[in-house]
Design a binder for these strands. Structure first.
Length: 680
DNA sequence: GAGACCTCACATTC
DNA sequence: CGAATGTGAGGTCT
């Protein structure tokens, strides 16, 4: 995920200047360097003098840069070693098997034997070693044992952007796969529910997590504006390690000289917090709420409440995560990391039920990039498009898409991109129809997961390629969607990419890369964004076009070389040798080349990045009794609103052709993985 | 070290 | 659709 709050062409995915802004705000550096060596608690006056070993408090004095962990250090990408042998997750044990074989699964899980190693009381550098406990779930050992954990011990303690991305992408890949199995009821009931918890449990048991060392302030690799779709995601990247609790803290384990200090809170609306203001949050303490076996009671100054109280006295920063109702899925919440806050005051008041409730007034530390504030602005723009500053056109598609796409320039005076014809689907000439016997499935009521009588599901190797939420489960050489001759209705789960835009997009002027594309809505990993529409041409015509000096900057070419990246949880499908899940695979009838110079859709505005947040996937479905390939774009990871959408344009597979080499351009993606150039 | 306790989840059902 | 409900997880703490 990329930080995504810049209004003005912040080059995602990694705007270093923005992160630099955050750094000085970090104040109290290791308060508890080590539980065993920590000096007794001291509370210096804000203006000093400060006891040795303590940094002064912000804002009275800035911490010295050398004491601030450098979020922007060159990152060591996690080395990714796929398992030696493919281990499909489909191989779940039945409960009977698992119960009869508990010892074996424990043994096979490897690290689980090491739980004696450290006392659970030790904190600091050894804290993560105790975590390698046994999973509660009885999985086929082949799933867990073969899995090489690509997270080093150091990365487990302290993350980087790449490690955080890796953890989240792996988590959601596994979660989607489990969810797919659950939908298909391929797993014994009861084992499959809550794929989020199960995925997190499997990975965390293997030590597949980061930032386990709890800390006050900045969490390396997590950026303000990052979004999460499950509480477990917050745990896995060390942003907030309580799986349910709203307040997370360190210290205070019963000893008097070690007071608890809050590190983070999640405001999700369970208590009546006041979360309307973008910079101020009135947060309720924990406890006292009515549960099944307990009536409403007064809150006590203990646990999280005590930690918040102590953090207020010390003017410590507290990370704030705001839970927001997901408009696309009203049952669910999206968690937005809104940066650091300080607690300005606290009081006790009578809640609705008459019981005493703690209240904390948290105020956002200034000079941080906007996050929640962006959401508030977008809310207004969506109500009334003309309130969007810099708006040129409310809908540049002139109604061709199901959802309007704004054209905005809040950067300079340019009035819009060069003229082109908007078309929402690719223009194929007859010669490109795929010779393929086309036949529909027979599902009258819509295709249901696990129904192997459905020929469309069978074409997708027996899986429904999308989850119930319409999220793509795995990258594949080809995804088969239902077509017009399928009797399933338009609401069929296998009609995701053909049903048009789902998120509110904006074409905007970037600061140095022409026009770009971004979204007002949050986009979760695997969600469909748009397809690539243009005129389909063949290789020869492309070559000729370029030799004639046509300066076409809107080419899509699936036959280029694409940087491999791991997205599916399943090892083997998209492995180290496979490229973009496409080229070189015999499943692909023919490469797809399109130009969107004269005819195209929003996808023509997506810029290149060497570390993109969007990937393409070939999709096929039949139209007018002939099948055509489509290029559909899906989110690599969760993408916060207003983050520029980018994909990898790929590199040329055959070097030496001058007309092609001329199309190399200097890359401005600014990511740590930048190759230095890209190909138009 | 085992287990009780705490908790602003989530999905499903009504 | 909101409320009710059941099954949860990691961390804290005894």
């Amino acid at each position: 995920m990329q930080g995504g709050s810049g209004f003005n062409a912040v080059p995602p995915p990694f705007d270093k200047s923005r992160v630099l802004d955050v750094k000085p705000l970090r104040s109290l550096r290791p308060i508890f360097p080590n539980a065993n060596e920590a000096p007794p608690f001291l509370c210096p006056s804000p203006s000093g003098p400060f006891p040795p070993g303590y940094s002064p408090f912000y804002p009275f004095s800035m911490p010295s840069p050398s004491e601030t962990p450098d979020v922007n250090q060159p990152e060591e990408p996690p080395t990714w070693t796929p398992p030696a042998a493919p281990a499909p997750i489909r191989a779940f044990r039945t409960p009977e098997m698992a119960n009869g074989d508990v010892d074996q699964s424990g043994k096979e899980a490897g690290p689980s034997n090491s739980k004696k190693r450290t006392s659970s009381r030790t904190r600091g550098s050894t804290s993560s070693q105790k975590k390698e406990k046994r999973s509660k779930f009885h999985l086929d050992p082949a799933i867990t044992a073969n899995y090489v954990v690509p997270i080093s011990q150091a990365q487990r303690e302290d993350g980087t952007r790449d490690v955080v991305d890796c953890v989240l992408i792996t988590f959601d890949g596994l979660r989607r796969r489990l969810s797919q199995l659950e939908d298909a009821k391929e797993v014994p009931s009861g084992l499959a529910r809550r794929s989020d918890l199960r995925a997190a449990n499997i990975l965390m048991t293997k030590g597949f997590r980061t930032n386990m060392r709890k800390r006050i302030g900045v969490v390396p690799g997590v950026e303000i504006g990052d979004i999460f779709f499950f509480r477990m995601e917050l745990c896995m990247v060390g942003l907030h390690s309580q799986s349910m609790g709203g307040i997370d803290w360190i210290g205070g384990k019963g000893s008097l000289d070690e007071e608890p200090l809050a590190v983070s809170i999640v405001s999700s609306g369970y208590y009546d917090d006041d979360a309307e203001d973008k910079d101020v949050l009135i947060y309720s303490g924990q406890g006292g709420a009515m549960t099944r076996d307990k009536p409403v009671g007064d809150q006590k100054l203990e646990r999280g409440n005590l930690a918040l109280e102590r953090s207020m006295r010390r003017a410590n920063e507290v990370r704030v995560i705001r839970g927001i109702r997901d408009v696309a899925n009203p049952n669910a919440k999206i968690y937005v990391y809104d940066g650091l806050y300080v607690i300005q005051e606290s009081w006790m008041e009578k809640g609705k039920s008459g019981a005493n409730t703690f209240k904390y007034k948290l105020v956002r530390v200034p000079r941080q990039p906007e996050a929640f504030a962006v959401w508030k602005s977008i809310e207004k723009w969506k109500e009334n498009v003309s309130s969007r500053p810099g708006l040129i056109l409310p809908d540049l598609t002139s109604g061709a898409e199901t959802i309007a796409v704004s054209l905005v320039n809040d950067f300079d005076d340019e009035k819009g991109p060069a003229y082109f014809n908007y078309c929402s689907t690719p223009k194929y000439s007859k010669t490109f129809a795929i010779v393929q016997s086309s036949y529909g499935c027979g599902c009258r009521k819509g295709c249901t997961a696990g129904d192997l009588n459905c020929s469309c599901i069978r074409k997708n190797s027996g899986d429904l390629p999308y989850t119930t939420n319409g999220v793509l489960v795995s990258r594949k050489p080809l995804v088969y969607e239902c077509g017009p001759s399928c009797p399933c209705g338009a609401n069929c789960k296998i009609r995701v990419s053909q049903s048009g835009l789902k998120v509110r997009l904006e074409v905007f002027k970037t600061k140095d890369r022409g026009w770009g594309l971004r979204s007002y809505d949050p986009i979760r990993a695997g969600a469909f964004i748009c397809e690539y529409a243009g005129e389909v041409i063949d290789k020869d015509r492309l070559k000729k076009k370029l030799q004639e000096g046509d300066n076409d900057e809107y080419i899509f070419d699936s036959s280029r070389s694409y940087e491999p990246f791991k997205w599916n949880y399943e090892p083997g499908l998209v492995g180290e040798e496979a490229t973009n899940g496409a080229s070189g695979d015999s499943d692909i009838p023919s490469p797809v080349i399109m130009t969107a110079k004269d005819f195209g859709n929003v996808a023509r505005f997506m810029n290149h990045s060497c570390n993109p947040n969007v990937f393409w996937q070939q999709v096929i479905y039949e139209e007018n009794n002939e099948s055509f390939l489509h290029i559909a774009f899906f989110a690599v990871r969760h993408i916060p609103p207003m983050t520029e959408l980018t994909y990898d344009y790929g590199t040329l597979s055959q070097e030496g052709d001058d007309s092609l080499n001329l199309r190399k351009k200097k890359c401005l993606c600014g990511t740590s993985k930048c190759r230095g150039y890209f190909v138009l």
